[in-house]
Lab assay of single mutants.
Amino acid sequence: MASQGTKRSYEQMETDGERQNATEIRASVGKMIDGIGRFYIQMCTELKLSDYEGRLIQNSLTIERMVLSAFDERRNKYLEEHPSAGKDPKKTGGPIYKRVDRKWMRELVLYDKEEIRRIWRQANNGDDATAGLTHMMIWHSNLNDTTYQRTRALVRTGMDPRMCSLMQGSTLPRRSGAAGAAVKGVGTMVMELIRMIKRGINDRNFWRGENGRKTRSAYERMCNILKGKFQTAAQRAMMDQVRESRNPGNAEIEDLIFLARSALILRGSVAHKSCLPACVYGPAVASGYDFEKEGYSLVGIDPFKLLQNSQVYSLIRPNENPAHKSQLVWMACNSAAFEDLRVLSFIRGTKVSPRGKLSTRGVQIASNENMDAMESSTLELRSRYWAIRTRSGGNTNQQRASAGQISVQPAFSVQRNLPFDKPTIMAAFTGNTEGRTSDMRAEIIRMMEGAKPEEMSFQGRGVFELSDERAANPIVPSFDMSNEGSYFFGDNAEEYDN
C-alpha cells in the first residue's frame, strides 16, 4: 500500500510504541512475548500442572481467558453494579484439565481477579502490559475465525453469508486497541457500523446529549479505520460520505453494504499476525530463551520457528480426527482463516481442507461434555516452508469459486491468482447506482469489472525454506488448481455463540 510509510507498523501498534527502528520493534515485541511466557509459567505453578498438562491447549485457553477477564475493567465495573446470582464479580476462573488415573478430569478453578492481575503485572515488570493482553485477544479471535462461520451475524446486519472472507476479527472485544483495529476485516468494521446506525434509528437519543457526542466521535473513528483499509480513492470518498452524514440511517447502511461487497474484489488491507497460545510461549521462556534479547516478529519467520520446536497437546472428542484438529489450530496460529487453501497447503506441506470436510468441533470443551471418553493427542503445528504475512489485500483475480465463501483475504505475501467468483459478486451490483453516491458507485463498479483474471497478485513473492531466515531465496510455489480455494466452501461450520 502506498501510504505504508505514514502508518505505524503493526509491531508498533502491538507494543504501543512511538516510531521505533526494526531492532527496537523486535525487542519490544519480544518483551511482550516474554511477559506472556513468564505469566503462563507462574500460572502453571499456581495450578500445580504437570509439564504435559501445561502444554494442553484447553488449559492455555482457560488461563488466557482468566487474565483477560481480570483486566476487563468495563465488564468488571458492570458486574459490580449489576450483581447477578451466583456470579462473584471479583473472581474469575474456568475449567482446568488434569490427568488422573490414566483419565482426563475437569476441575473448575476460581481465583481472585486481583490475584491474577498481581501475577500478570509481576510477570511483566510491574506494568499492565496491555500489548500482551491484546495479543491474547487476537489469538482467540484468530481461533474463532478458523472455527466458526459468522453466517447468522452477517444475515442479521443485512449482509450476504458468502462475504465471510471479510469477517476477520469479528469476535475481537471493543477494547483491543490499535492492534485489534489493524486485524479487523472490512466486513467486521461494516458490521460494527451498521449495528451502531441501527441503534440510532431505533433509539432517538442515541446521537443526542453528552453521551451522543461520545457516540458520534466513536462512529467517526470507526469510519476512519474502515476508510484506511480501502485502497481505492472511490471507496475512500464513499467512506467520507458515510462519516460526514448528519443523521446516519438506511442510506448509510446501503452504502456500507455496497462497500463491503466491493471489497470482495477491490480488497481492503487487513493486517495478519501470528499470535500463538500462551502454552507455546511459556515452555520456550522456561527453556531459557530470551525473546527480548533475541527479538521477535509476528509477521516473519519467528512464529514458524517457534511452532517448529513446540509440543502442544489437545483434548480430542471420541469421533474427532486429531489431524483435522491440528489443521484448525495451525490455521489459527498463522492467522489464515480466509487465505486461499492452495497457498496454505503449499506452505504447510500437507493438504489443507475446507472447514466442512474437517471432523472436528471447536477447541474448547463445553462444561456439560462427558470427560470419560476424552483422549488427548499432539497437535501437528509444523510447516514445510515459511512466508511473510501481508497486510495488503493483493490485486484481484477471477477463479472458480464456491457456493460458500466467494473470495479470499490473503494472509501471506505469496504470488498467486486470487480466487473470487466474479459473476456471483457482480450480480449483486445491478441497477442500484442512484442517489448521492452514484458517481462513486459507478466508478467502483467500473474498477471491479476491469479486474483481470490473468493478473498475478504479489508478483514474484515466494515462500522460503525454514533454514532461509533472511528470506534470501524465494520459492514461487505451484498450486494444484483442481483443489478448492475457499475454506468455508459450501460450508456447515458451527455458528459462533458468545
Results as ranks from 00 to 15, higher is better:
1 M>N: 10
2 A>M: 10
2 A>I: 10
3 S>R: 00
4 Q>S: 00
4 Q>L: 00
4 Q>R: 12
4 Q>D: 03
5 G>Q: 09
5 G>I: 07
8 R>I: 11
8 R>W: 15
8 R>V: 08
9 S>T: 02
9 S>D: 10
9 S>L: 00
15 T>H: 00
17 G>E: 12
17 G>P: 00
21 N>Y: 05
23 T>D: 02
24 E>L: 00
25 I>V: 09
26 R>L: 05
27 A>N: 07
28 S>R: 14
29 V>R: 00
29 V>D: 06
30 G>Y: 05
31 K>G: 02
31 K>L: 05
31 K>T: 02
32 M>D: 09
36 I>L: 01
38 R>Y: 13
38 R>H: 02
39 F>I: 14
40 Y>F: 02
40 Y>N: 12
41 I>N: 14
42 Q>A: 00
43 M>N: 00
43 M>S: 09
44 C>L: 08
48 K>M: 09
48 K>A: 03
48 K>Q: 00
51 D>A: 00
52 Y>N: 02
52 Y>A: 15
53 E>Y: 04
53 E>Q: 03
54 G>I: 13
55 R>G: 03
56 L>E: 05
57 I>K: 06
58 Q>L: 13
59 N>F: 14
59 N>E: 07
62 T>L: 01
64 E>V: 05
66 M>F: 03
66 M>T: 01
67 V>E: 12
68 L>Q: 06
70 A>V: 13
71 F>V: 05
73 E>H: 15
74 R>L: 14
76 N>A: 01
78 Y>G: 09
79 L>F: 10
80 E>Y: 02
81 E>K: 01
82 H>W: 03
83 P>S: 03
84 S>R: 05
92 T>R: 07
96 I>W: 08
98 K>F: 07
101 D>C: 06
102 R>N: 15
102 R>D: 07
103 K>M: 03
106 R>K: 02
109 V>N: 11
111 Y>H: 15
114 E>S: 01
115 E>T: 12
118 R>T: 12
118 R>W: 10
120 W>Q: 11
122 Q>V: 03
122 Q>C: 01
125 N>G: 02
126 G>K: 02
128 D>A: 00
128 D>F: 00
130 T>R: 07
131 A>L: 05
131 A>P: 12
133 L>S: 13
136 M>F: 00
136 M>H: 07
137 M>N: 12
139 W>M: 08
140 H>Q: 15
142 N>K: 09
144 N>F: 13
147 T>A: 08
148 Y>R: 14
150 R>N: 14
151 T>S: 03
152 R>P: 02
152 R>V: 06
152 R>Y: 11
152 R>D: 11
153 A>M: 07
154 L>G: 04
156 R>D: 13
158 G>Y: 00
160 D>Q: 01
162 R>T: 05
163 M>I: 03
163 M>D: 03
164 C>Q: 14
164 C>T: 12
170 S>M: 14
171 T>K: 09
173 P>I: 09
177 G>F: 06
178 A>C: 06
178 A>G: 08
179 A>L: 09
180 G>L: 03
182 A>L: 01
182 A>D: 06
186 V>M: 08
187 G>S: 04
190 V>M: 05
190 V>L: 02
194 I>H: 01
195 R>I: 08
197 I>W: 08
200 G>N: 13
200 G>P: 15
201 I>G: 03
202 N>F: 00
203 D>V: 04
203 D>A: 02
204 R>M: 12
205 N>C: 15
205 N>F: 02
206 F>R: 07
209 G>R: 13
209 G>Y: 11
213 R>D: 09
219 Y>L: 00
220 E>R: 11
222 M>Q: 09
223 C>I: 12
224 N>H: 00
225 I>A: 09
225 I>W: 12
227 K>D: 11
229 K>E: 13
230 F>Y: 05
230 F>I: 08
231 Q>P: 02
232 T>G: 06
232 T>Q: 15
233 A>P: 15
236 R>Y: 12
236 R>F: 12
236 R>T: 05
239 M>I: 05
243 R>S: 04
245 S>V: 04
245 S>T: 15
248 P>I: 10
248 P>N: 07
250 N>H: 02
253 I>C: 12
253 I>S: 13
254 E>Y: 12
254 E>H: 12
254 E>G: 15
255 D>P: 07
256 L>D: 14
256 L>W: 08
258 F>M: 10
258 F>G: 07
261 R>D: 12
262 S>P: 13
262 S>E: 10
263 A>R: 13
264 L>M: 03
264 L>W: 09
268 G>Y: 12
269 S>A: 02
269 S>H: 10
270 V>W: 10
271 A>C: 07
272 H>P: 14
278 A>L: 06
283 P>D: 01
283 P>A: 00
283 P>W: 08
286 A>P: 03
286 A>C: 09
287 S>A: 10
287 S>L: 10
287 S>F: 10
289 Y>F: 04
293 K>I: 04
296 Y>M: 12
297 S>C: 03
297 S>Q: 10
298 L>A: 13
299 V>K: 13
299 V>G: 12
300 G>C: 08
300 G>M: 11
301 I>L: 08
301 I>A: 15
308 Q>F: 09
308 Q>K: 05
309 N>Q: 03
311 Q>L: 15
313 Y>W: 07
313 Y>D: 04
314 S>D: 12
314 S>F: 09
314 S>P: 14
316 I>W: 06
316 I>S: 13
317 R>M: 11
318 P>S: 06
319 N>E: 00
320 E>Q: 13
328 L>Q: 02
328 L>A: 04
328 L>H: 04
329 V>S: 15
330 W>K: 10
331 M>I: 07
332 A>K: 06
334 N>Y: 03
334 N>T: 05
335 S>F: 14
336 A>L: 15
337 A>F: 04
337 A>R: 08
337 A>Q: 11
340 D>E: 15
342 R>G: 02
343 V>N: 12
345 S>P: 10
346 F>C: 03
347 I>Y: 09
350 T>G: 09
351 K>T: 02
351 K>P: 08
356 G>F: 13
357 K>V: 12
358 L>F: 12
360 T>L: 14
361 R>D: 10
364 Q>N: 15
365 I>Y: 12
367 S>M: 02
368 N>L: 14
368 N>A: 12
369 E>I: 07
372 D>H: 12
372 D>R: 10
373 A>W: 04
374 M>Q: 10
374 M>V: 14
375 E>I: 12
375 E>S: 02
375 E>T: 05
377 S>G: 15
377 S>Q: 02
377 S>R: 09
380 E>R: 02
381 L>W: 07
383 S>F: 06
385 Y>Q: 13
387 A>Y: 06
391 R>S: 13
391 R>V: 08
395 N>Y: 02
396 T>Q: 01
397 N>M: 01
399 Q>F: 15
400 R>P: 13
403 A>Y: 06
409 Q>F: 04
409 Q>E: 05
411 A>K: 06
411 A>M: 09
413 S>I: 07
416 R>I: 06
423 P>H: 05
423 P>G: 14
426 M>G: 00
426 M>I: 15
427 A>T: 15
428 A>M: 06
431 G>R: 12
431 G>I: 07
431 G>L: 00
432 N>W: 00
432 N>R: 00
437 T>C: 06
437 T>R: 06
439 D>F: 09
439 D>P: 06
439 D>H: 13
440 M>N: 01
440 M>L: 12
441 R>L: 09
442 A>I: 00
443 E>R: 09
445 I>Q: 06
446 R>K: 15
447 M>L: 06
450 G>W: 01
451 A>R: 15
451 A>C: 14
452 K>N: 12
453 P>S: 15
454 E>N: 04
461 R>F: 08
464 F>P: 00
465 E>D: 05
467 S>Q: 01
467 S>A: 09
467 S>Y: 05
468 D>Q: 10
469 E>G: 13
470 R>L: 13
470 R>K: 15
474 P>M: 09
475 I>C: 01
475 I>T: 09
476 V>F: 12
478 S>K: 03
479 F>K: 15
479 F>N: 08
480 D>N: 06
481 M>D: 09
482 S>N: 15
483 N>W: 12
485 G>A: 00
485 G>D: 06
485 G>Q: 04
491 D>F: 09
492 N>G: 13
493 A>S: 02
494 E>G: 15
497 D>Y: 04
498 N>E: 15
